[in-house]
Design a protein around this nucleic acid. Structure first.
Lengths: 261, 261
DNA sequence: CGGCTGATTATGTACATACATTATCGTCGC
DNA sequence: GCGACGATAATGTATGTACATAATCAGCCG
């Protein structure tokens, strides 16, 4: 269906482009062709590609189309481009391990468990009084929450959270009797950047008691700070029993997906 | 689909001053302007944007330039576009927590430590003999490695690795006396996708002895499988002392970075 | 009423052209 | 030899134009 319709676009007489597969838009075909050369190792790291002019005559398309394909590949990290110097195969792909940011309730529900949460503690205070959140000015009103997440009745994650009441004043009126704080915040407050730290810790006695495990049990500790409009929104610390909780994710380059590599 | 909330933003936009900031390329200014409206909450999730024609006259640029800006924002997940229907503010940003995939030697070197590694064990075997790697056919020749990474002489990470010798036969001849396996593989073999699992475990006695900690110490466990050209390349399991090692990263949307939000 | 169908509309792709931006390279002058 | 400097070659941006594609909408007809 695609192939036939495409020919009517511009009946290019030659069409002798052995490397293009004829599927989908031209710029996508170019992307696949070039990414294929790289992923299959034919164009080695650091090598210089033909320039846009050469590629355009090689593939029989206009420079704009080549430019779009190559610029996208550069944006995806396969290529590095320097004016006047040319286009090079990226020597190091600065790949990233991507983990989805999900509400734990969703995760539990999806895995078939029954999700519950309990608010263990809730108070408002000012920064610097009992707790200091370094990235927020002293004296800023904060909401402090402690919360336990359960799957099928078993404690699975302990959450300690600070919310900047200057940035999100509405949260003060929210009872959190049906919606968990994390979900409420995700739905309510957009964020523009988040920082995470993940480490492993041995459970202290009080946390262990809450989570129903022996003191010293390995727990995954996730600290997340969310920022929006130059203001810190929330600082949250999750502690989860190692046995019952893990993070997982995959990194797949778009081009690899297209190529079925 | 989203029944009610499709009011045109054209009139509202006349109230909001669409002035561009004049910094950098036009399409980038448009991106910032539009992303700003969304991130500041002026254009709500599900709302419909003015079409490219309207935006182009609103900002006084050509449709192509608007198209480029909007298409990029759509690619970044801020917008959803449907032909004939229009462009809508994405209701859910499927945000991801990105962790860099780095060689531990680099990490240690950057933090000023002296990096060393020791190969503790090396053997070749066939899949299914002593070990089974589920994603690889039984009988496939494998290289099995155990390796310890040290920072300033102190053990910091234990690595157990399987390499598919059908996919990377050259690895059989590599002595790994100066280059660590992870670095060798990163430089040698491109990969197109990787899967990770992160959890916390209590160190078993033998691992604890290797890492020089008490048995039961919380360790971060990272499992990574790398795939290329539809073949599994390597399966590696890292165990690091929680005290001495953590993962950290940040997720920042490109547009937010540009906006300094 | 309900389904088919064709017109309409918004996005998507492609090409041509022009000019801007910048490293790089080679040459000139010292 | 070495530094300044301009020519040059590559990518980057912007616009115009044309047509393709897809989904919606309205109206027609059964």
């Amino acid at each position: 269906m695609q192939g036939a319709a495409r020919q009517s676009l511009t009946e290019r007489a030659s069409g002798a482009d052995p490397s293009l597969d004829g599927k989908g838009p031209l710029f996508g075909q170019i992307k696949r062709a070039v990414a294929g050369q790289i992923l299959r190792g034919r164009w080695q790291a650091g090598e210089r590609l033909p320039n846009e002019e050469q590629l355009s005559s090689l593939y029989g398309v206009s420079r704009q189309t080549v430019h779009k394909a190559i610029a996208l590949l550069a944006r995806e990290g396969f290529l590095v481009r320097r004016r006047r110097a040319g286009t090079f195969v990226a020597s190091v792909r600065n790949d990233r391990f991507a983990l989805p940011i999900e509400d734990i309730g969703d995760v539990i529900a999806r895995s078939g468990g029954v999700y519950e949460f309990r608010i263990l503690d809730r108070k408002t205070l000012r920064n610097g009084e009992a707790i200091r959140w370094p990235d927020v000015p002293d004296g800023t009103p904060l909401l402090s929450l402690e919360c336990l997440h359960l799957s099928d009745g078993a404690p699975i994650q302990f959450e300690r959270r600070l919310v900047n009441l200057d940035a999100v004043p509405e949260v003060a009126d929210e009872p959190f009797d049906s919606v968990a704080p994390s979900r409420w915040l995700v739905n309510q407050v957009p964020w523009s950047s988040a920082e995470h730290t993940v480490k492993a810790v041995n459970a202290a006695a009080d946390i262990a008691a809450l989570l129903g495990v022996e003191p010293g049990t390995a727990c995954l500790s996730i600290r997340r700070q969310t920022v929006h409009l130059n203001r810190s929104i929330t600082l949250v610390h999750f502690l989860s029993v190692g046995e019952r909780f893990s993070l997982s994710g995959s990194s797949i380059t778009d081009s690899a997906t297209e190529l079925n590599l």
